[in-house]
């Protein structure tokens, strides 16, 4: 999706570069055809791909760090859960409301927080993730605390619900494809170039007339919208939400996916999410050694593909950003 057909024909090396993407797409297609529990695994992977695609805008393109993206997944997730399960809103309205809430929160949080840089920004955003988690635990009248909210309806429009696993997976695949396409378009835009510029040098970016503070804030808001969307999708697919689902492990998983897939690349979030989502299942039969082998596999990937799997095929690094 990142390369036009004409380019591929002109440059066979591009073929090789798109192999990891082809693999990820093949896995999704396989899951849609197979229909077994792999549907669940791939479904979660696609939801995470949306989440990571948002994180990629803020971290991969703009070069900033956020350990608190789970906060926005929580906002989306709980907005969807409460509005649909408790107040009977249609899922789509819940998703939109969640995203609107995430935008407002990202603006309010981003304005003071994004003044921080480097490790301080990492710590600041980490705190936000932890605070929102605590709110999810403590605000029992709304979130039901650790008991969680159940009875969340599946995705659908009007009376038509995506009941079957397969239909849900196809829907998720479409949403993920649109999300990646959106990040790709964003990267190719004036705004996208400004993000990559400020990640290289804020001073150089300023000298070109880029409003660094505002650009970062917009990137943060956009990534929050992706996170919120992912949170909403997650609760509709599972039908349940509790604080553990939007805790720190979500951030750790997303970081792993981003780095394994290829930070700053368009297709990296999908590739990383599929590979990381699938790895534990491949090793599940190993029982107690599952985590050990999974960890070893991760380390090997990061050693032999330090730029992420998405950049593996590029033997000669002619272009870094997918164009």
């Amino acid at each position: 999706m990142a390369t036009s057909p004409a380019t591929i024909l002109r440059n066979p090396r591009q073929w090789l570069g798109q192999l990891p993407l082809a693999f990820a797409v093949a896995v999704v297609a396989y899951a849609i055809i197979d229909g077994g529990y792999i549907v669940t695994v791939v479904g979660f992977a696609l939801i995470y791909a949306v989440f990571v695609a948002g994180l990629n805008i803020f971290m991969g393109y703009a070069g900033q760090t956020s350990f608190g993206q789970n906060a926005f997944a929580a906002i989306g997730g709980y907005a969807s859960a409460v509005l649909t399960a408790t107040y009977g809103w249609p899922p789509l309205a819940g998703i939109v409301a969640g995203m609107a809430g995430a935008v407002v929160c990202a603006l309010l949080i981003g304005m003071p927080t994004l003044r921080l840089k480097g490790h301080y920004l990492a710590m600041g955003t980490l705190a936000i993730g932890l605070i929102v988690y605590e709110i999810a635990v403590e605000w029992q009248s709304v979130t039901n605390g650790y008991m969680g909210i159940s009875g969340i309806p599946p995705l659908g429009i009007g009376s038509w619900e995506l009941e079957s696993d397969r239909a849900q997976l196809i829907f998720l695949a479409i949403v993920t494809a649109l999300s990646l396409w959106a990040t790709w378009r964003l990267r190719q835009s004036r705004f996208g170039r400004a993000l990559v510029a400020l990640s290289g040098s804020e001073d150089a970016a300023r000298a070109l007339g880029i409003n660094v503070g505002r650009t970062k804030l917009i990137a943060f808001v956009i990534s929050a919208m992706f996170a919120s969307l992912a949170g909403s999708l997650l609760v509709h697919i599972v039908g349940f939400i509790s604080p553990e689902m939007i805790g720190m492990n979500m951030v750790i998983l997303a970081f792993t996916m981003l780095y394994v897939g290829g930070i700053g690349t368009t297709t990296g979030p999908l590739i990383g999410a599929v590979v990381i989502g699938l790895l534990p299942e491949v090793f599940r039969g190993l029982k107690d050694y599952q985590d050990l082998v999974y960890g070893t596999a991760l380390i090997l990937i990061l050693i032999y593909a330090p730029g992420g799997i998405a950049s593996l095929g590029r033997l000669a690094p002619k272009r870094r950003a997918a164009r």
Binding site: R193, V196, A197, G200, D203, A204, A207, R319, A321
Partner: peptide, 10 residues
């Protein structure tokens, strides 16, 4: 102060 990861055109 050029942006190394980006193309010349960008």
């Amino acid at each position: 102060g050029i942006f190394g990861p980006m193309s010349v055109a960008e």
